[in-house]
Design a protein around this nucleic acid. Structure first.
Lengths: 166, 166
DNA sequence: GTTGACTCTATAGTCGCTATAGGCACTACG
DNA sequence: CGTAGTGCCTATAGCGACTATAGAGTCAAC
């Protein structure tokens, strides 16, 4: 028996809007509709959405997932590129871990710059003002010196707490 | 001798547009202008921009930097909240590292599912289809089972309220 | 018949930039 | 003097993967 979008969302552990978004992006085919224009999904859609969500949880982006789905639908070439894709992701994740470990070191150095509870002369502000007292990486390739950043500066790192209750 | 925006950008290791963006966002004050409407920056702006960039390299977002600048400009309260802020970032980074290490494990399990160079029966696709063969975390709290994700799949909603509350 | 949960479409916002378009200012060269 | 090349100006749109909001229709239960 076909599912409405809310039921599908619950099954897949995602939001209703996310499913509509995937449809708009061409990852999910346009489903049947009821007389009152509600979307109706069958088993195939459930599996496809699960596949997509698992890919997302493995860090794949939507373009990569599109390619994986296309291959799944019609494996016209060898799957070797999928191995390469996963290898690339592993390398990427390793890079990110290394960057974050480096960043953590800097943050801890920063943290130790102030024991504080005062208005003037906060050691953290001073350090941010004049450069790191940490000598771990005076080298050019250090994230704080080479303009590259510990991780892409485009990524917001403020993701926290409020993200997903319910 | 005042600097033009391009010179300032070179000094700070960022893009010209980024400086204009910071101005629009209120992190940098509107500078003087030449007769031909070019921005002119003095030493104070150089230092302020360096401060901002160092904060960014430490993973702070613009809202947090705004708060830090406000404190720097006028330290009307104790700096204790800055320590808390840095602690929060350290905890955050640790969480991200743990998540990524977990993700890496999953990706490696995925990678081992296929040695492949074939069209049908790619082990990676199968795994993404039917779930992980990895037994490391059958538990509910595993990122691949609990809908939480190895890192937040909802990046944008991590928006915390302004850092310097209280 | 009214509430409340669910669904629909459409649009805008998130974050920290990046890219593009169209035009003005300045310098160097011929 | 004209022109080429660079830099600067404003304004607007785009990125990725959603999230949030508005306004309206649908449906089951009371």
């Amino acid at each position: 028996m076909p599912l409405k979008i809310g039921e599908l969302a619950r099954l897949a552990g995602c939001q209703v809007v996310t499913i509509r978004y995937y449809e708009k992006e061409g990852l999910l085919p346009p489903p049947e509709r009821t007389d009152s224009n509600y979307r109706l999904y069958g088993d195939a859609a459930v599996e496809r959405l699960h596949f997509i969500r698992r890919c997302r949880l493995h860090g794949m982006n939507l373009a990569e997932i599109r390619d994986l789905l296309a291959f799944k639908d019609n494996p016209s070439v060898s799957c070797a590129w999928i191995n390469d894709l996963v290898d690339k992701h592993i390398a990427d994740v390793e890079r990110q871990i290394a960057s974050l470990q480096h960043l953590k070191m800097h943050l801890e150095a920063l943290r130790h710059a102030c024991a504080g509870d005062h208005r003037e002369g906060c050691g953290i502000i001073d350090t941010l003002d004049h450069g790191s007292p940490c000598t771990c990486c005076e080298e050019e390739h250090c994230c704080l010196n080479d303009g590259q950043g510990p991780f892409s500066l485009r990524r917001s790192s403020g993701k926290t707490t409020s993200a997903q209750q319910k």
